[in-house]
Every structure is written in structure tokens, then in C-alpha cells.
Simulated assay, not measured.
Amino acid sequence: MASLSRRGHRPFETLLVLLTLDVGLRHTGLRGPWRYGIAHLLDILAIAAGAWLLAALLLLIEDAALSRFRTDVLDNLSARTMHTQIQLLRRITVAASVVAAIIMSLFTFREARLVGTSLLASAGVVAAVVAFAAQALLGNVFAGLQIAFGESLRLEDVVVVNEQWGRVEEITLTYVVIHIWDDRRMVLPTSYFTTTPFENWTRTQASLLGTVELDLDWSVPVDQMRDELRVILTDSQPLWDGRVCVLQVTDAVHALVRVRALVSAKDAPTLWDLRCLVRERLVGWLREQHPRALPRLRTEVGAPDGREPAAEHPSNHGGGPDRDAQVFGGDSAGRRRGSEFTGPEDRR
């Protein structure tokens, strides 16, 4: 009721005063050339005040609906969907109220009614001309409705657009505002998101996987490095969500091998900090414990030396690969991840 009073008091008061003046003027004995002009003006103002009151009541209903869906909780996917749809409906209702008020005001003029009758007789031609002239605007409007009710994009979604990482700050019927991570704003037409591929990192969940890649010498102790990765992530519990900890050699050509650490975090900002931390700690560990594993160029002259092969690391005992050495296996989460990327024949 407090919201109703705050939003509806002024438009209701204005409409009541204008209707009172209009009725009073029409039922008095005052005559003169000014009477018709004043009465006509009061009619137009009453229509505007009625549209104002209608829009205020619709906004009140939408605010009540928004208050039922909180976005400041961890699992806010449904709430963000409803906020996106309700805010677009808010803009539609306000625009419809304004357009309806303008049309009703115009039809209070006799000339406008005559023009309206002529337009209705040639509605097909007029509709074709208007659609052709405003095809870009109408395309963005329909794209905005498609985004709102197709759930491909929501408020607060984290997206990558034109190689820019940001958050969806505002969605209107004609444009979308992306808040870039460095506080810039990118404004794109809504039709962009229905015609151009983009990355949505939070469409179903916020948690992500990230990689840290290092090009190292062939002498790098992969098993020990894998154990060190586990130690680093265990010490980084506020950042690491405990889902994925994998270290693999993904490439081994020419003078270097590529070692990739795969880690997981609850959201994109946390993942960025975790990746930077893992990269820093691994580089420091290599520099202090295994400096010969750092990237270098070697030239061999003559026969190779007779060095004994390194002893097997204890982490390899017991048979089978290390669980931190498999992305799509090793533990139940890895096996489940692998099953999601197999065909129906492989699942059987």
C-alpha cells in the first residue's frame, strides 16, 4: 500500500482534478469562444493523466513481482531470468501507455479522425511502408523479445562478445549494455545477440574450468609437478572449488614440451585469480626446485652421456594413471565429464 500511495498519488490526484474541472466546465452556463478550446485541452490533459496513472499501476505490479525474485543469492538463475523478462515488460507497458495516450489525444481532433479513417482504408499499404521504413528498429524490438523469453541472455550473465569479457548490465527492447571487466560499457543492438555467436559463461551455472599452460624443457618432472599443483590448490581453498585438478603434457614437439594445468573455480573472476596464482606458484617452484626444467636451447655435440634413468616417482606406484593426470577419467567427476562428450553408441 505504501508503494501504491507513492506511485499512484500524484497521477490519481491530477486525473481527479482535471475530470472535476472538465465536468464542471461542461455543466456551467458559461459561454464564449474560449469554452471549446479549454474543454478540449482538459480532455487531452485528462487522457495524459489517465495514461500516467495506468503506467504507475503497471509499474507497481511489476515491482511487486520483482521483489519476489532475489538475485543476491548464490543460485539466482531463475531470478535473473524473471528480472530480465519483467524489466522488458516494464518498458513495453510504459511505451504502450504513451503511444495509446498520444493516439487517443489525436483522435480528439476532427481532422485526425478523418485522417485515421483514410488510413484504415489503406491499412495494408501504410503497414508495408512503415515496416520497410522501420525494419531495423522493429528487428531490434523483436530481437529483444526473443532474448527475454528465449533465455539465451539474462541480466547479470557473464559473456564474451567481440573478444571482450563482461557482464550484462542492462537489456532493453533495442540495445544491450555490457559492463566490461575494466569498467568500460559496450552498447550493442539486441539483434546482434540473435545473429552473431557469443559466449555465455553463466547460462546454466557460474562454475568454470580454466587452464594454465607452460612451455618447459623435456627434463621437467611431470609427476612431481602434478603433486605440487595439488599442494598449491589445496592451499588455495578460497579460490579453488575442489572439483578439478589435472596436469597433463598436451604437446611435445621440437625443443619444448607443453604442460597444461586444468583447474576449476566457482565463477569467472575467481577463476582468473586462481589461474594467475597457479601460474605464479608453479613458475616459482620450477625456478627454485628444478631450474633445469625451465625453457632453454641445448646443443648436443658427440655421443649422448650415459646418465642413468631417473627413479620412478612414488606417485606412479600401484598401477594405472594418476587421477590428476586425466580430464575425462580418474575419478567419478572425470568419468561423468567424459560421458557427456560421448555419442549414444559409446554410452551403451
Results as ranks from 00 to 15, higher is better:
residue 227 D to K: 07
residue 219 S to Y: 01
residue 246 V to Y: 00
residue 322 D to I: 00
residue 27 H to A: 13
residue 239 L to Q: 02
residue 257 V to N: 07
residue 194 T to A: 14
residue 162 N to A: 15
residue 57 L to S: 05
residue 16 L to E: 11
residue 209 L to T: 01
residue 342 T to M: 12
residue 84 T to P: 02
residue 7 R to I: 08
residue 167 R to P: 05
residue 213 E to D: 14
residue 335 R to W: 09
residue 23 V to P: 00
residue 68 R to T: 08
residue 231 V to A: 13
residue 5 S to D: 11
residue 320 G to N: 08
residue 176 V to K: 00
residue 127 A to T: 14
residue 111 E to L: 09
residue 288 E to M: 03
residue 263 V to Q: 07
residue 348 R to W: 08
residue 33 P to G: 10
residue 129 V to C: 06
residue 210 G to A: 09
residue 281 R to N: 04
residue 206 A to K: 05
residue 226 R to S: 13
residue 110 R to M: 06
residue 289 Q to G: 03
residue 34 W to F: 11
residue 296 R to W: 06
residue 123 A to C: 03
residue 89 L to D: 03
residue 252 A to S: 07
residue 62 E to F: 10
residue 155 L to K: 09
residue 144 G to Q: 00
residue 304 P to G: 11
residue 98 V to D: 08
residue 180 I to E: 12
residue 120 L to D: 11
residue 109 F to C: 13
residue 110 R to H: 07
residue 178 I to P: 01
residue 173 L to G: 09
residue 242 G to T: 07
residue 266 K to T: 13
residue 58 L to M: 10
residue 23 V to D: 08
residue 176 V to D: 02
residue 203 R to N: 10
residue 209 L to A: 01
residue 17 V to L: 13
residue 231 V to R: 09
residue 171 I to H: 01
residue 267 D to L: 01
residue 345 E to A: 10
